[in-house]
Computed example of a mutant assay.
Amino acid sequence: MTRAFNQRISDALMERERSNLLRSVQTLESGNQSVFHKDGQSFLNFSSNDYLGLASSSELKHSYQQAIGELGVGSGASPLVTGYSAQHESLKSALTEWLGFDTALFFSSGYAANQALLLTLLTKGDLLLQDRLNHASLMEAGSLCGADMKRFRHNDLAHLESLARAERSTLAVTESVFSMDGDLSDIEAFVGICQTRGMLSMVDDAHGIGVIGDNGLGACGISELKPEILVVTFGKAFGLNGAAILCSEEMGQYLTQFARHYIYSTAFSAAHARALLQALSMIQTQHWRREKWMELSAMFEELLSDCPEYVSTSTPIKPWVVGDSARALALCSSLKEKGVWTTAIRPPTVPRESARLRITLSASHQHQDVLMLANQLTRFSEEG
């Protein structure tokens, strides 16, 4: 039996390597900053989701350090035991007031939040309708939850509406910003269709919260209609980690009673909750951070708009689609030689023949950083 497992593992790894799809963990020496070090070399970081530059902010680091000194470094238990503190409650109050929901439940990651929600809420006989490009956490939970899952064509709301069934309990799910393409959903039209057709609406706002919309309100800032369930994550614009499900009071009570990811996971620490509250305050007041990445985005657009590989977006995610996985890896390697760090995204994360660099811009970048990257990409495009 052991030999069978070993052979399966070996064959799978060999196939990944043969197809130029083998992934590897990279060890960085100086944390999540706009410039980091690896093996003695400095790199400009264009792969981070730290869109507003909060992760390396002295103000946020100081707040976290103070909180650790006062509150310690671990919660010690799940939220239903002793892991939920006054700091968590303060964060919940600030977040729900800002986004306009009754309550919020906190999780260790967006993956856990999405899994908790779908696995707890849906059961056999229900219908789950998902955008075809939704995150892997949503797709996996959909396949495991017992509901019948159907995927509508990406951002095709007419297709979504055609799949609705009035006689079935239905949850429809989309993302505000799609993580690999950087494009936006029409949140208002999506929620409107859900309301008209009697479907429960959910939006994963991982890559939108803090960045898009009025005052960084994410999905709630680009639509007058709010989804009934909103998932936000803290590992992108907030510069930290963790996630929250925002919903009605009754839905929150239901998840508290039955969501196993919530019940049986250790809560993030009180110090972490205090730091997240500080990050939220910075998002709400330091508008220059959004203005900075929008300025850099406009610059990037102007420099690369004539390149066929460039995909224009109104978000910090800027795909550079080359198609072939080997070509994407070669471009990554070439950029690293120039001190520019990007990541090649290949199947199965993206569809076949759509391998790309997933380039992200941050308020922590400087104009000369973006110019350097754009010059290297233009040279690559011209060389074919």
Rank of each mutant, 00 (worst) to 15 (best):
R3K: 12
A4N: 04
I9V: 15
S10T: 09
E17K: 14
R18Y: 05
R18T: 11
S19R: 14
L21F: 06
S24W: 12
S30F: 00
N32L: 11
Q33M: 03
K38P: 02
D39W: 00
D39T: 04
G40H: 02
F43G: 07
F46A: 03
S47C: 07
N49M: 09
N49G: 07
L52F: 08
S58T: 11
L60R: 09
A67W: 06
I68C: 11
L71S: 08
A77V: 12
L80T: 15
V81A: 14
T82H: 12
L91Y: 11
E97C: 14
T103S: 14
S109A: 13
L118W: 08
L121T: 12
L122S: 08
T123K: 10
D126A: 06
S137A: 15
L138K: 01
A141Y: 04
A147E: 02
K150Q: 13
L157G: 07
L157W: 03
H159I: 12
L160P: 05
S162F: 04
L163I: 07
A164K: 05
E167S: 14
E167R: 02
S169A: 12
A172Y: 06
F178R: 01
S179I: 10
M180K: 10
D183G: 09
A189H: 02
C194A: 11
T196R: 15
L200F: 03
V211P: 02
V211I: 15
G213A: 11
G216A: 13
G218T: 10
A219W: 05
S223R: 04
L225Q: 03
P227K: 04
V231Y: 00
V232T: 13
L240S: 13
N241C: 10
A244I: 10
L246Y: 00
C247Y: 07
S248L: 05
S248E: 01
E249P: 03
L255R: 10
T256A: 15
Q257P: 00
A259K: 07
T266V: 14
S269T: 11
S269N: 09
A270P: 09
A270G: 14
H272P: 10
H272D: 08
A273M: 09
R274M: 10
A275N: 06
A275G: 09
M282A: 03
T285N: 09
R290D: 00
E291N: 12
K292G: 00
W293Q: 08
M299E: 01
L304E: 05
D306H: 13
D306S: 15
V311F: 05
S312G: 04
T313F: 08
S314I: 11
K318N: 08
P319Y: 01
V321G: 02
D324W: 00
S325G: 02
A326F: 13
R327A: 14
A328V: 04
S333A: 07
S334K: 09
R346W: 00
R346A: 05
P351G: 05
R358K: 14
I359C: 02
T360H: 10
A363G: 15
S364I: 03
H367N: 09
H367R: 08
M372T: 11
R379Q: 11
F380E: 08
E383G: 05
G384E: 03
G384A: 06
